[in-house]
Design a protein around this nucleic acid. Sequence first.
DNA 1: CGCGTTTGACCAGCGC
DNA 2: GCGCTGGTCAAACGCG
Length: 297
Amino acid sequence: MERKEDLKMEDVLVNSSFSDYISSSFPLQSVFDFCCEGETMPLGFMELLGVQDLNPSLFDMAQQAPPVTQKIESPAEVLNQPATPNFSSISSASSETVNDETVKVDDQEEDQQKTKKQLKPKKTNQKREREPRFAFMTKSEVDHLEDGYRWRKYGQKAVKNSSFPRSYYRCTTPSCNVKKRVERSFTDPSIVITTYEGKHIHPIPIMPRSSLPAGVHLSSGISAAGASSFGMEIQRTPSHYQQPFVNTLSAFNFGQNGSSFNPSFLHERRFCSPGPSLLKDHGLLQDIVPRHMLKEE
DNA sequence: CGCGTTTGACCAGCGC
DNA sequence: GCGCTGGTCAAACGCG
């Protein structure tokens, strides 16, 4: 499927060509600049995640920003987010729903699973409901970055125009519908693009050491994955790497409904990062990150 | 044995 | 309508 040049951002964010588009259509720095509104004001990932609580003005930033940002605006990934008037007006353009999913989807899935096998008559009349998503880029040699949650790989697909496959993961916690896709940028293979979809409805599982992938534990795994640059320096240096690309609008969805989406590696970035900022963050982290993870430092 | 990965097949959506 | 592609399923397999 050859994409048009005037690819809608919706496509960019939803479809597989997302990474290709991102990396080919504008330089990475531009993407990251989007997060910072073109200014040298890098936002940490936590800031981005918590932004709906801490900095609602970012909505405005996103909507006032330069062309790139304009393109990134997309209702497709941002649903039922009455965070701002602007936002709700955008959401109205979408046919997708999110808030009702918790109950409804469960029922649907039950039915589906009953009737599966016989050429699974997936969803019938409704459009497939999509969870809010956000994506970020990570400079890493490891495809599957450990984030504290347990994931089960359920698929892998070759990506058009890319020599690297895309992997599909699902949270192994029962009744948790969070998924993530992991792929590499074909223009820069050292960049891993992770797209999260959905919200965890449970805390980060306490994982026995043995359950962690070999060579990957919560801190060293990230380190091995380039955590050196996954640290707080991200907020201080113009380094291109490990800068999360966030579908900012979608990111706002996380943490709503009382459940929070807190990719622990975002915290780990700070763990891995020496310096004053580490200490400063610890107070907050202790409220969020399980103790055993903190001990891993 | 339990859990996770691999992989081929299937289905839905979209563009032409 | 057709073909392509993304997303998902599930059996088979591997590993600890």
